[in-house]
């Protein structure tokens, strides 16, 4: 018990020191505030949305932004702000589900080929070459084309391509860590490969991967809303930013707010993820590299 508390307190101290350094950076603080707000909007849209996002109001069709409707109303008189807020739920989910499985699969495969090398590594290298030969979006929409449009199929398609990027990163990190003495020490002590990989190498290799995950969530929102806009992601009547922007596309001349307002949410959320990601990358970068 004493051993446990002893081994915990330095870690906790380091984390506290790390957080203190992180929060002394304005960009990190801004990013965290944006992400915190986005998460609250995604979890409790009903608290924040002033109107029912689906309620038609035929008395108030395509009204300009005003105090009553800060983002205006759409062609059915629905409040655009409320729809944008409800869309946080879908888009924040997108950021998570489009990346988490790629992260898990990528780490597993990357750790495996990075640790064992050999023929598996050669095959992996070729597969990576082949997959990055396709433009990301083209490959994803080709897979969506075969599976059919929709959110779940979009997650499958993005994961099918995206895991490669995590695997490539993990492989490089694991190979770098493997060269260290402590990995050899693990071997000498007779630890199993699994123990060395997951208890020793991976914890040391994980921080760049998690930083990449942050920026990747921003990319996932850009990608997911693009697919939504193209009609291949979330399907109307679901409120999703890309879908909302597409709905306003035909009214750019008469009701520009329908398309332009939802974009603010995309930009803000993307900015939140990249600010946090960049700050973490800066802080975690080993000195003198």
């Amino acid at each position: 018990m004493t051993a446990l508390t002893q081994s915990h307190s330095p870690t906790r101290g380091r984390i506290a020191a790390f957080l203190a350094r992180a929060f002394s950076r304005p960009s990190f603080v801004v990013g965290v505030v944006i992400l915190g707000l986005s998460l609250s909007l995604a979890l409790f849209p009903q608290v924040f949305a002033p109107y029912d996002p689906l309620a038609f109001d035929l008395q108030a069709i395509q009204q300009r932004p005003s105090l009553a409707h800060p983002f205006g109303t759409d062609n059915f008189g629905r409040d655009v702000l409320s729809r944008v807020i409800w869309a946080y739920r879908v888009d924040m989910q997108m950021a998570f589900f489009a990346t988490i499985f790629a992260l898990l699969i990528g780490i597993t495969v990357g750790a495996f080929v990075g640790y064992y090398g050999g023929i598996a590594d050669v095959i992996f290298g070729r597969c990576v070459d082949a997959i990055i030969t396709f433009p990301f979006l083209v490959l994803v929409i080709a897979i969506v084309a075969v599976l059919g449009p929709g959110l779940v199929n979009m997650y499958v398609a993005i994961t099918a391509v995206n895991w490669v990027y995590y695997a490539r990163l993990t492989r490089a990190e694991i190979m770098a860590q493997k060269a260290n003495d402590y990995a050899a020490a693990g071997l000498v002590l007779g630890y199993s490969d699994r123990r060395i990989i997951f208890r020793h190498l991976l914890p040391n290799a994980i921080s760049p991967i998690l930083v990449y995950w942050m920026t990747d969530m921003a990319l996932a929102i850009l990608l997911g809303s693009s697919l939504g806009y193209l009609g291949l992601g979330a399907q109307p009547p679901a409120a999703e930013w890309g879908v909302l922007i597409a709905e306003g596309r035909n009214f750019l001349m008469t009701a520009w707010w329908m398309s332009l307002m939802p974009g603010i949410a995309i930009v803000l959320t993307g900015l939140g993820f990249s600010l946090v990601g960049d700050a973490l990358a800066d802080l975690l970068r080993p000195k003198g590299r």
Binding site: L222, G263, I266, T269, S274
Partner: peptide, 23 residues
């Protein structure tokens, strides 16, 4: 440019279209 990185291409396009072409 950080802002530019957070904007999807279709949104940049629609912004340009609305402001420079339509308006």
């Amino acid at each position: 440019f950080q802002l530019g990185l957070s904007m999807p291409v279709f949104y940049i396009g629609l912004l340009l279209l609305t402001v420079l072409a339509a308006q």
